[in-house]
């Protein structure tokens, strides 16, 4: 037996037809009216079938539209997740690249004292050889010996100070580089740490004859993430060097004045104000400078991640806030405020 949703209706119609025939014999004058009634019921049944079919089709369309919608939503969500992942990867790459720049800066800085020490040692070595020659040939005079002593005293002093300077640079750089790479929390003497960070930037600043002034209370110790602080400061300075003093031709300008001013507006809170006296940031760029990939130097190797990383570190690692204040021709001022002792992660033991 085939299944038929409208079996009962069809059966009723069939019965009505049979009844109609009997009625035609018994009361012929009622036949036409009765047939019209049966006809109306048949129409109504057909209409029901159509409605059920149409409605089922609509439901199926709705169902597949919903499925399609859900599929697209999942696609969009997975695309968004991919994008976030790519963005994070780029931020990590950018941080590594800036670590590379830090290494280059310090290498350049160390080159000078090491170079001086090498040439002094070479000079001393030559003088010693000459002295030995004269002594062996029995021609060593008192004046020769006295001259040699002067040379030896001067060169060894220079070697010593320059090697000490190199050792100091390496020590400070080592700590900054480790902090930068490890992102570990520790207590640091803020003033000293700022100075150490600026060492790696010295070549850049000197090359463009920018001056930087640091004003920081000497006893201020923060228990925080020094790598983040160092990265933020480096990005501030690099931003100024790259953008603030550029002339109309796009050449990097010279002789800017940068300042780093640290104070404690209230106990437990550190405020670091960084300024440059450059050309300032156009108002239409200002709301976007912390956005990832916002750059005015897309074609020239700008990643647009520098200040985004600053924002991330300020809000994320340091659990602080950052704001910017700038107008064309008025220089730029960043205010970084963060807790002196970084509070522990939420939910972390």
């Amino acid at each position: 037996m085939t299944f038929n949703l409208f079996a009962a209706e069809e059966q009723a119609i069939e019965q009505a037809r049979l009844l109609g025939e009997r009625l035609g014999a018994a009361a012929p004058d009622l036949r036409a009216e009765f047939d019209a009634l049966v006809e109306a019921f048949q129409r109504s049944t057909r209409e029901q079938r159509r409605l059920v079919r149409v409605s089922d089709r609509l439901q199926a369309q709705l169902g597949s539209a919903n499925q399609e919608l859900e599929r697209r939503r999942q696609e969009a969500e997975s695309a968004l997740a991919d994008l976030r992942e790519a963005q994070e990867a780029m931020v990590r790459a950018e941080k590594l690249a800036s670590l590379g720049a830090l290494v280059a800066g310090v290498a350049h800085e160390i080159n000078t004292p090491v170079g001086i020490a090498v040439s002094c040692a070479s000079h001393l070595s030559d003088a010693t050889a000459r002295l030995r020659g004269r002594a062996q040939s029995g021609e060593l005079s008192k004046a020769d010996f006295s001259r040699y002593l002067t040379t030896a005293t001067d060169t060894t002093a220079l070697i010593l100070t320059n090697c000490e300077r190199a050792a100091k640079l390496i020590a400070s750089f080592k700590q900054v580089a480790v902090d930068r790479a490890s992102a570990e929390r520790r207590a640091v003497h803020l003033n000293r740490y700022i100075q150490e960070t600026l060492v790696s930037l010295e070549p850049k600043l000197r090359q463009s004859r920018h001056g930087i002034t640091v004003s920081c209370p000497d006893g201020l110790v923060v228990d925080s993430y020094p790598g983040a602080l160092s990265q933020i400061l480096t990005n501030f300075v690099m931003n100024s060097v790259t953008h603030a003093f550029v002339d109309a031709q796009g050449a990097e300008g010279q002789g800017g004045a940068l300042t780093v001013t640290v104070d404690e507006p209230e106990p437990g809170t550190v405020r670091l104000v960084y300024t440059d006296n450059g050309r300032g940031i156009p108002p239409d760029h200002l709301p976007r400078i912390f956005d990832p990939f916002f750059t005015t130097r897309r074609g020239e190797g700008g990643s647009g991640l520098g200040l985004h990383i600053v924002h991330n570190l300020a809000v994320g690692a340091l659990k602080g806030t950052i704001s910017v204040d700038s107008a064309p021709g008025q220089g730029t001022r960043f205010v970084l405020t963060f807790p002196k002792d970084t509070p522990p992660e939420d939910g972390a033991a």
Binding site: L5, Q48, L51, V52, R53, S55, Q59, A60
Partner: peptide
């Protein structure tokens, strides 16, 4: 349920 199920 859909319309044909309702009829069923």
């Amino acid at each position: 349920f859909n319309s044909s199920s309702a009829k069923a």
